[in-house]
Deep mutational scan, measured.
Amino acid sequence: MGKSNSKLKPEVVEELTRKTYFTEKEVQQWYKGFIKDCPSGQLDAAGFQKIYKQFFPFGDPTKFATFVFNVFDENKDGRIEFSEFIQALSVTSRGTLDEKLRWAFKLYDLDNDGYITRNEMLDIVDAIYQMVGNTVELPEEENTPEKRVDRIFAMMDKNADGKLTLQEFQEGSKADPSIVQALSLYDGLV
């Protein structure tokens, strides 16, 4: 993909415009910024974590950033290329609610087996709590990752089998306004 070129080839721009919710001009602008920050044309896990640390200076986002990195890194080569970056950004910032929920499901399904187990969710929720640090005051019933996961599973795990399917996750998330709101945070920002 033209590693350190400051412009993408027209056919690449066209393809990314088809695969995302961005215009050709927006794709070019994002590429310019991506190459400025990642001259090699790729972003590794350490660089990704560094970006998260800028956004969450009062907590430790390392663990959460690693989980997000793994979802962005579609081809699992340990690096995020621009096409992976822009497609994930498109879903998280401008995707439909169902697209965002499928993306979030992939984030929580750490072993990619098609289910979110209690332990997988606990890993992610714990990482989120570490990331936000003491900057967020949580209600008593959610002031630990374990309590939050218990509440989520009580609401979403309809067949009580200890794991969530994509359908259970989507339906449960849509029924909880706070989850829908959290997924909409990026709307309109890009």
Results as ranks from 00 to 15, higher is better:
Ile80Val: 08
Ala160Glu: 09
Val136Leu: 06
Lys147Gln: 04
Glu141Arg: 09
Thr17Val: 03
Val132Met: 10
Arg118Gln: 00
Glu168Leu: 11
Lys158Phe: 08
Phe72Val: 05
Gly47Ala: 01
Gln29His: 07
Met156Ala: 06
Thr135His: 08
Glu81Ile: 12
Lys63Gln: 10
Val91Thr: 05
Gly162Pro: 01
Ala88Cys: 12
Lys25Thr: 11
Thr135Arg: 07
Leu107Val: 08
Tyr108Pro: 12
Glu137Lys: 11
Gly162Asp: 12
Lys100Arg: 08
Thr117Tyr: 08
Thr62His: 14
Glu14Arg: 06
Arg118Asn: 03
Phe64Val: 10
Glu141Pro: 00
Gly2Cys: 02
Asp60Lys: 01
Trp30Lys: 00
Asn143Tyr: 09
Leu8Ala: 10
Gly41Trp: 07
Glu26Lys: 15
Phe85Ala: 04
Pro39Ala: 12
Phe55Gly: 00
Val125Tyr: 01
Lys174Leu: 03
Glu142His: 11
Lys63Ile: 14
Asn112Lys: 10
Lys106Thr: 13
Asn134Ile: 09
Ser6Met: 00
Ser178Gly: 11
Gln130Pro: 01
Ile124Met: 11
Glu142Asn: 00
Val27Ile: 12
Glu14Met: 07
Asp176Asn: 07
Asp98Glu: 10
Ile152Thr: 08
Asp60Gln: 09
Gln29Met: 08
Leu107Gly: 02
Met156Asn: 08
Asp150Pro: 04
Ser173Ala: 06
Lys7Thr: 07
Glu15Val: 12
Val125Thr: 11
Pro139His: 13
Met121Pro: 03
Glu81Trp: 01
Val27Asp: 15
Gly114Trp: 05
Lys106Trp: 05
Leu185Lys: 06
Glu84Thr: 07
Asp60Ala: 07
Lys147Ser: 09
Lys76His: 00
Lys7Phe: 04
Asn119Tyr: 09
Gly47Lys: 11
Arg148Trp: 04
Thr165Pro: 02
Glu11Asn: 00
Val13Gly: 15
Leu43Tyr: 09
Lys36Pro: 00
Thr117Val: 13
Phe64Ile: 07
Gly188Met: 01
Glu120Asn: 13
Ala65Phe: 01
Leu185Pro: 11
Gln28Ala: 10
Ala154Asp: 13
Phe169Cys: 09
Leu97Ser: 12
Asp113Glu: 04
Phe22Val: 14
Asp73Asn: 13
Lys147Ile: 12
Asp111Tyr: 07
Asn134Gln: 05
Thr135Ser: 03
Gly188Ser: 14
Glu84Val: 09
Phe48Ala: 11
Lys36Asp: 08
Ile86Ser: 07
Phe56Cys: 05
Thr117Cys: 04
Val132Ala: 05
Asn112Asp: 07
Lys76Ser: 01
Asp109Phe: 03
Leu138Val: 08
Glu137Arg: 11
Pro57Ala: 06
Glu120Asp: 09
Glu84Asn: 11
Thr17Tyr: 15
Gly133Lys: 02
Phe153Arg: 02
Tyr186Asp: 00
Ser6Arg: 06
Val12Cys: 14
Lys100Gln: 10
Trp103His: 02
Lys100His: 03
Ala154Arg: 04
Pro145Trp: 12
Val132Gly: 09
Val125His: 06
Cys38Glu: 04
Glu140Arg: 03
Ile124Ser: 09
Gly2Met: 06
Phe55Thr: 14
Gly95Lys: 01
Asp176Phe: 07
Lys147Val: 15
Gly188Glu: 15
Leu110Asn: 07
Gly47Met: 02
Cys38Trp: 10
Lys158Met: 13
Phe153Gly: 01
Ile116Pro: 06
Asp123Arg: 02
Tyr31Thr: 04
Gln167Arg: 09
Asp77Arg: 14
Gln87Asp: 11
Asn159Arg: 01
Glu81Leu: 03
Gly2Ser: 03
Arg94His: 03
Glu146His: 04
Leu138Ser: 12
Ile152Asn: 06
Ile116Trp: 00
Asp176Tyr: 11
Lys63Glu: 08
Pro177Thr: 00
Pro10Glu: 02
Asn75Leu: 14
Gly133Ile: 05
Cys38Thr: 06
Phe55Cys: 05
Thr20Ile: 15
Ile35Cys: 13
Cys38Ile: 07
Ile128Leu: 11
Pro177Tyr: 14
Gln42Ile: 04
Ile124Asn: 07
Gly95Val: 06
Ser4Ala: 07
Gln28Asn: 03
Arg18Asp: 01
Gly114Asp: 07
Leu122Phe: 09
Gly33Tyr: 10
Leu16Glu: 02
Leu43Met: 06
Gln49Trp: 06
Tyr129Phe: 05
Lys50Ile: 05
Glu146Gln: 12
Phe85Gln: 00
Met121Ser: 01
Ile124Ala: 01
Tyr115Ser: 11
Leu43Gly: 11
Arg18Ile: 13
Leu107Ile: 14
Asp161Gly: 11
Gly114Ile: 02
Phe105Ser: 07
Gln29Asn: 12
Asp73Ala: 13
Gly114Lys: 13
Lys163Met: 04
Gln49Gly: 07
Lys19Gly: 07
Asn159Val: 13
Gln181Ala: 15
Arg79His: 10
Pro57Glu: 00
Glu24Pro: 14
Val68Gly: 12
Gly188Asn: 03
Asn5Arg: 15
Lys36His: 01
Thr66Leu: 07
Val125Ile: 07
Phe58Val: 08
Met121Trp: 07
Phe55Ile: 07
Thr92Ile: 06
Val13Phe: 05
Ser6Val: 00
Asp37Gly: 09
Val180Leu: 10
Leu97His: 12
Ser40Arg: 11
Glu99Tyr: 11
Gln28Cys: 02
Ala104Leu: 01
Glu141Phe: 14
Glu137Val: 05
Cys38Lys: 07
Lys9Val: 14
Leu97Ile: 03
Gln29Gly: 08
Glu15Gly: 14
Met121Ala: 01
Val190Ile: 15
Leu185Thr: 08
Asn70Gly: 12
Ala175Ile: 07
Glu171Cys: 01
Leu101Gly: 06
Leu89Gly: 03
Tyr115His: 05
Phe69Cys: 11
Val12Met: 08
Asp126Arg: 14
Thr96Gly: 01
Leu16Gly: 15
Glu99Ile: 15
Ile128Glu: 02
Arg102Gly: 04
Phe82Asp: 00
Gly95Ile: 13
Trp103Val: 07
Lys76Trp: 04
Tyr129Pro: 01
Glu168Ala: 08
Gln170Lys: 07
Val125Lys: 00
Val132Arg: 00
Asp176Gln: 15
Thr17Asn: 15
Met121Leu: 13
Lys50Met: 07
Gln54Phe: 09
Met131Gln: 06
Ser83Trp: 15
Gly59His: 11
Ile35Gly: 12
Lys50Thr: 08
Gln42Trp: 04
Gly188His: 07
Tyr115Pro: 02
Asp157Val: 12
Tyr186Trp: 01
Asp60Val: 06
Val13Leu: 11
Gly114Val: 06
Ile116His: 09
Ser90Leu: 06
Phe82Cys: 15
Leu110Ile: 06
Met131Thr: 13
Gln130Glu: 15
Lys147Phe: 02
Gly188Arg: 12
Glu137Cys: 07
Glu26Val: 15
Lys174Asn: 13
Leu89Ser: 01
Tyr21Lys: 08
Lys9Asp: 03
Asn119Thr: 07
Met156Pro: 11
Leu166Met: 01
Lys7Asn: 06
Val125Ser: 01
Gln170Phe: 09
Glu26Asp: 12
Asn159Leu: 01
Trp103Phe: 07
Tyr31Asp: 15
Ile124His: 01
Val91Tyr: 13
Tyr108Trp: 00
Asp126Val: 09
Thr144Asn: 14
Gly78Glu: 08
Gly59Tyr: 10
Phe153Leu: 10
Arg148Asp: 00
Lys25Ile: 05
Lys19Cys: 10
Phe67Cys: 05
Glu137Met: 08
Met121Ile: 07
Ser184Asn: 09
Asp150Lys: 04
Ser173Leu: 15
Lys163Gly: 06
Glu146Cys: 01
Ala45Trp: 07
Phe72Ser: 12
Trp30Gln: 00
Asp150Leu: 08
Pro145Val: 00
Val91Ala: 08
Asp109His: 05
Gln87Gly: 13
